[in-house]
Design a protein around this nucleic acid. Structure first.
Lengths: 141, 141
DNA sequence: AATTAACTTTGAAATCACTACAAAAAAAAG
DNA sequence: CTTTTTTTTGTAGTGATTTCAAAGTTAATT
């Protein structure tokens, strides 16, 4: 009986290949983590969690993989704050909400993404919409 | 004849007071710089320019002043990139455009700011809209 | 004006995210 | 299976921002 590893059944390698990314093990691990957690983690959070399962994983590799995934367009970097980059595997246009109290970043998939029409002599590549405020969990009263 | 200093005629101290900011000299200097340049500078750019006129100005003071102005709402921090914070004294809602080639940040005052309606259990404090792309000056052809 | 209290400024040192680099390891090509 | 290319790793470096404590200013009170 043939041994089946997880990456063969969850389709992650194929998704990476569709972005022109060779599905090496650490790339698959980081990408799967981003998709499953859907948490907009920092590079540090990713490393902290994955190193428990992959003790040899270095932080440099996490940065390398994230930079590669961003270059290939498989992952987006979200600039919700000035010090730390956060990463998002949901690459369709959607509004981000950052809670000032708990710090969590939400995908607001349920509301429409605004249409922005800059003057024609500007050419758009990406549009980021980030709301800052208080999330439902942190409301008082 | 009474000596008149610049800050008495340009109304900067009053504008600062209206935000609950005591108009100390360095605060006035940094705030006036932001308003006059309207350039979305980094803390480093501000210090570099102002230290020519105010040789004793330390970089720490620039950071202190910027943090204070942001806390009081007189100035907004714009997160156009993950490494450096940029500062903007134009605090009305407007779209920002960051050119990938020359790095300049433009205020797109001429286009409408989108209306974003998050689910009612989220409370909005600020909305940032940042477009990435190529500016008119950097277009080829 | 003199005294005291509160706030600011300063510069050096520390912090923290991220990058550069070069050697070791792994994967792909021949 | 050998060679070439690509990845991984750890260490050391970089650069923006913060911390800290001493010195300097400003404001509040006699």
């Amino acid at each position: 009986m043939k041994k089946t590893v997880r990456s063969e059944i969850d389709g992650i390698p194929e998704r990476l290949r569709s972005f022109g990314v060779r599905p090496l093990t650490h790339r698959v691990d980081v990408y799967r983590y981003l998709i499953e957690q859907n948490n907009h983690p920092t590079a540090d959070m990713i490393h902290n969690d994955l190193v428990k399962i992959l003790p040899s994983l270095s932080k440099t590799t996490v940065y390398n993989v994230l930079n590669h995934l961003c270059e290939k367009g498989a992952v987006h970097r979200v600039n919700v704050e000035q010090h730390e980059a956060r990463y998002d595997a949901m690459i369709h246009d959607h509004v981000h909400f950052k809670c000032r109290l708990c710090g969590k970043v939400y995908d607001l998939d349920e509301i429409p993404f605004p249409t922005i029409d800059p003057p024609t002599d500007y050419s758009i590549e990406i549009v980021q919409v980030i709301i800052g405020g208080i999330c439902p969990d942190c409301q008082t009263g």
